[in-house]
Computed example of a mutant assay.
Amino acid sequence: MPDPAVERRTRKRQMTRQAISDVATRLFFERGFDGVTIDEIAQAADVGRMTVFNHFPRKEDLFFDREDAIRDAALTALRARDRATSPIQALRALAHRLIDTPDPTFPLFDGTCRFVQTALASEALKARARQMRDEFVQLLAAALVEDAAAPKDDPDAHLAAGLIAAAWTVAFMEAHKLFAEKDDLDAANRRFLALIDKGMAGVEAALAGSAYAGAA
């Protein structure tokens, strides 16, 4: 049976983390990522400097605070898929679910313009985004290897992971660009899914005959 005291501490920690994140996001949007210090975030959130670092080891983590949720969604889609569905098809289906049933915790386009603009204006954030993409590719490759019971250094798994990450990145950025220009969410969604579909078709063609393109 869950311990009520532990649950209270967990809720309090989650609330503190969210409050710090909300304050940091507001300041980053107002003044740019590089124009805000950790001390200013701590003061605005009414917490100590070390409390901020206890929740967010790096300043960049305050900005990309939803990265874990996005990564987990991809890995869950892979692991929980119907075994008649290939890993590549499962990640294509995830993109369609995110459009058909938007998740309020990480909207794809509506409400993300300031986020993307702030990220593109900071060399530190662009560098961290590249690092996170590389880390995700490694995690996805490991998950693909585990799923297929393949050798850890299977080059096909690393190729699949890299191509999937590239397809998602291009689809998101192109759809965001269209939304920023036209303020048309439906058009952005259509562009995102069209590029996802093309990208995943390309990945399946490149990996034809492998465990990653065929059904289990």
Rank of each mutant, 00 (worst) to 15 (best):
V116Y: 15
A165T: 01
A74F: 12
P4R: 09
A84F: 07
F115R: 09
G202D: 08
G111R: 04
G214M: 12
L75H: 05
D153I: 08
T118D: 00
M50G: 11
A129D: 05
D65N: 13
P107Q: 04
L75V: 09
G209P: 14
R11I: 10
D197I: 12
P57D: 04
D184V: 07
R83V: 14
A160E: 05
A129H: 01
G214V: 11
K59A: 05
A211G: 08
Q18D: 11
D103F: 08
A74P: 00
D110R: 13
A166W: 01
A194H: 11
R17H: 08
Y212H: 10
A129R: 07
A124M: 12
K177H: 13
P102T: 10
M132I: 13
E181M: 11
T16F: 00
A150F: 08
A44Q: 04
T169W: 07
P102S: 09
A201T: 15
P57Y: 03
L195G: 12
F56E: 02
D100N: 10
F64I: 05
A127I: 01
R71C: 02
L62Y: 05
F172P: 02
L193T: 12
M132F: 06
G48K: 04
A149P: 03
D110S: 08
A175Q: 08
I164E: 11
M15Q: 15
L163S: 09
R31T: 05
A45K: 04
A143N: 03
A44F: 05
F106H: 15
M173L: 10
G202S: 09
S86D: 04
F109S: 01
R11W: 06
D61V: 02
I20W: 03
A90W: 07
A180C: 09
V6P: 00
K59E: 06
R17S: 08
F109E: 05
L144A: 02
Q117V: 11
D3I: 01
G199R: 09
R13Y: 06
S21V: 03
P155Q: 12
V145D: 04
R58A: 13
N189Y: 06
R114P: 02
A143M: 01
T76D: 12
R13D: 05
M132Y: 10
D34S: 07
D34G: 07
V23N: 00
D46V: 08
P107K: 02
I38Q: 00
K177L: 10
D197P: 10
A93C: 09
R190Y: 02
A84P: 00
K126I: 10
D68L: 14
W168N: 15
D183Q: 14
L27C: 04
E123Y: 04
A215V: 07
A127T: 15
G209C: 10
K126A: 03
V36A: 04
L94Q: 12
E40T: 08
V52E: 00
